[in-house]
Each structure stands twice: as structure tokens, then as C-alpha cells.
């Protein structure tokens, strides 16, 4: 499915630790580059990218400063982390050393974004049914993940096997699943 690899596309730089592309809205790691492979669990990192991006949008909206082209920069003791929405399908993340000059970092990010956009433009991600996304979201955030599917089964009356293969459910059943997930997570609405 992928015709390229970030490991081949990204030009190494002494201050660049990693680049990771997250597929939205499922927050699944699509591809990654690491200067030192397997140093960190980027799958795990990617699973929270959606939250950060969404929260950033809401903050900007509440400040009346929302713009689609905004990017997120987080500075920690060790790293500068930059997240940028490429389009509605992908978010790119860059992990630089904290001490790298910010001007040089921005320049490198711009350069890499061009490369990424070019290579991702023809890619058509597989459509994941919303119910699968909802249940995946539940598994990720439920307070007792080992029991979360059983709780949905009890709340909705749908057998566990059906929840594991939820294709073919009717509208009402899908709405019931979503409502039960919303209740378990204590959310008014589910923003996936």
C-alpha cells in the first residue's frame, strides 16, 4: 500500500530525532522515521495526537485565533516537538533536540512538509466505519479497559461477538453503541 518509506525520504540531521505521520481520525501511526530506530513507541505516541490537535483547535477557537494552517510547538527539557496538520487525513510530528536553533528547526520542518505533502497527496486511506472508531476510542480511554466491551454489551444488549465485528448493525444499534460509549467515558459528545 505504501510506495515509500519515511526512513528513506527523510534527510538525516544531527538535531532531528524522529518524524511520525499519524493517520486521522484513528490516530494510528502511518509511517515514521527515527534517527535511532525503536528508541520510543511511536504507535503509542500517535494514539494521543488526535487529542492534542483537537484540544489545540478548541483553544484557538476560544481565543478567536483559529486558523487551519496553525502548528503546535511543545518544548520540553530534551525536545522541541512540532505537530502540523497536513490535511484532514494526516498529522505530521517532528521531534528535534531542544538545543537546535528554532529558525533552523522551522526551516527543516517546512522542507520536510513539502516532501511529505507531495508523497501523501495520492494516498487514499481506507475508510474505517465510525462504529469501529468509536469502540477503538473506548478501548483507548475507558477507565477499566478489560471490562469496557462487556459494559457496552450489557448496556446495548448486543453480544460481544457482534461488537467485535460490528459491520451490518442497523442505525439504532449503532446509536446505542455510541450512547453507551459516551456514558462510559462521561462525555457529552464524542469528537473522534
Amino acid at each position: 500500500m505504501q510506495e515509500y518509506s519515511l526512513q528513506e525520504l527523510i534527510e538525516p540531521s544531527p538535531s532531528l530525532n524522529a518524524v511520525f505521520v499519524t493517520a486521522m481520525p484513528d490516530c494510528l501511526l502511518f509511517d515514521s522515521y527515527e534517527a535511532q530506530p525503536n528508541k520510543r513507541d511511536l504507535n503509542h505516541v500517535a494514539s494521543y495526537v488526535g487529542d492534542l490537535v483537537r484540544a489545540n483547535r478548541e483553544v484557538l477557537r476560544s481565543l478567536e485565533e483559529y486558523e487551519e494552517d496553525a502548528q503546535i510547538t511543545v518544548e520540553t527539557k530534551e525536545y522541541q516537538i512540532i505537530l502540523k496538520e497536513l490535511d484532514e487525513r494526516f498529522v505530521a510530528g517532528f521531534l528535534f533536540n531542544r538545543k537546535a536553533p528554532i529558525g533552523m528547526v522551522r526551516l527543516q520542518v517546512d522542507k520536510m512538509l513539502k516532501v511529505l505533502r507531495k508523497h501523501l497527496e495520492s494516498y487514499k486511506p481506507e475508510e474505517i466505519p465510525r462504529v469501529v472508531q468509536v469502540l477503538d476510542y473506548l478501548q483507548r480511554y475507558a477507565p477499566d479497559p478489560h471490562a469496557s466491551m462487556m459494559r457496552v454489551a450489557l448496556k446495548t444488549g448486543l453480544p460481544l461477538q457482534t461488537l467485535q465485528n460490528p459491520q451490518g448493525l442497523n442505525e439504532q444499534q449503532l446509536a446505542n453503541i455510541e450512547e453507551s460509549v459516551r456514558q462510559i467515558l462521561g462525555l457529552k459528545t464524542l469528537h473522534l
Partner: peptide, 8 residues
């Protein structure tokens, strides 16, 4: 649970 979810 309070750090993980909210409750209405």
C-alpha cells in the same frame, strides 16, 4: 476514576 473520566 476522576482523573480518567468525568461523570454527570
Amino acid at each position: 476514576y476522576g482523573q480518567v473520566v468525568s461523570r454527570s
